[in-house]
Design a binder for these strands. Sequence first.
RNA 1: GCGGCUGUGGCGAAGUGGUUAACGCACCGGAUUGUGACUCCGGCAUGCGAGGGUUCAAAUCCCUUCAGUCGCCCCA
Length: 435
Amino acid sequence: MYQKMKGTYDITTEIQYFHAVEKAIQSVSRLFNYQEIRTPHFEASELFHRGVGEDTDIVGKETYDFKDRGGRSLTLRPEGTAGVVRAYIENKLYAEKRVPQKYYYYGSSFRYERPQKGRFREFRQFGVEAFGAKSGELDAEVIAYAVTLFRALKLKNFIVHLNSLGGKDSMSRYRKALKEHFKPHLDKLCEDCNRRYETNPLRILDCKIDADTKPFKKAPKSIDHLTDEDRKHFDTVKAALTAMGIDYKIDHSLVRGLDYYTDTVFEIKDTSAALGAQDVLCGGGRYDHLVESLGGPSTPAVGFGIGIERLIIALQAGDFPVPEPSVHVYLLTLGEEARIEALKIANMLRLGGISCETDFLNRSMKAQFKQSTHHNARFVAIIGEEEVQNQTVNLKDQKERSEETLAVQDLYNAIYEKLTGKQDDCNDCEHKKGE
RNA sequence: GCGGCUGUGGCGAAGUGGUUAACGCACCGGAUUGUGACUCCGGCAUGCGAGGGUUCAAAUCCCUUCAGUCGCCCCA
């Protein structure tokens, strides 16, 4: 038997959750005025190496790299931003008249990792990127977008972690301060941290092994090394969040693992314990130099990524109502003629927006009744020889627990009225009149 | 890349060397050839993730491998 590849999975009954999330994404994107952008699932390897950063774990050990038949070195995208930035530059979207240019993306990303809860080799990511404005208020709007999405999905147990790394000047000051601070303690730090000390001292703060040690706790804070300008930017972000009623927690150890971040960085963590070690639902920040470093004009930008699988795990732990698949009418047939008649009736009902299911196996009445339950049918329409003869249908309303004999020509109106009551829209599902 | 745990029907689960692999749920058929959800009767794994080995005998012991799961690293 063939098996799916490690770290991938088939979406079957859970599709309902994906639809719910996708619907929320579309409606929140509309509210915040973000346009969807779709970019390829693979790009030249070079793009991710330069975009995400050669020294990051993602590029160093997690990318799916392969050579195509033309000998090109390609990589399945490990995250969304690099591809969107490439498209932004290549399509000269910076010349768009609307500023800032705000995009969202949704789709699979790939990382070669050992799978565990909330972590897959192929996973879906949703993210937004806003280009063209260096504004703390835009940073705050991006965070507000994520929070709004979570609220729309009835999530309650999450918290925004916030920090600022500052721009190039602030960061180099901070790096120097960190190195000075940790230098006398290097022998006490783990192997990884010693390596990070040379390659990227900021990442030492990410370490969980050394997190409880004294030098770690006394480590200098990035926000104490911001230039006046960067400090002002961060103050604007915080004020804007407060103005929008968004709670946040300043997290001095939050540095993020991707190289391109500047100034604001944030994560939104799930606090329900449903996600185990992978509690980061959303991660993002400002990246003011990425567009330029990938060959575009100097363009400030800010964005985030959200893991759809993690979001859905959080959703399932919460009380988000997910509708069961259902059908309006189950046509229960008895005999050959009745089946033909049922097809005609189903066709007629479907044209009017009423969904139908019927029996294709010539099964017993009992079996068909069971099927109608499995299909969550509101109505069972019984069609036997007698009904075919008289052009009638025996209609059972499973909700009202009533049964009546109706002329075929009256069937549609009767069902429609019961489904919609006095309103225009179906009360049982999302069917709208005229659709 | 490293470590722990797990793998028996559609699902849950017993079985730790000895006949025919319990049981429950679900499903299917019948009792009841036009009214299901209760009840009763019957059916439903030639096989225990896969491959190899030990043995008179393997779901059970050994080796290899695959997958799942949780954790580390890191991230969404």
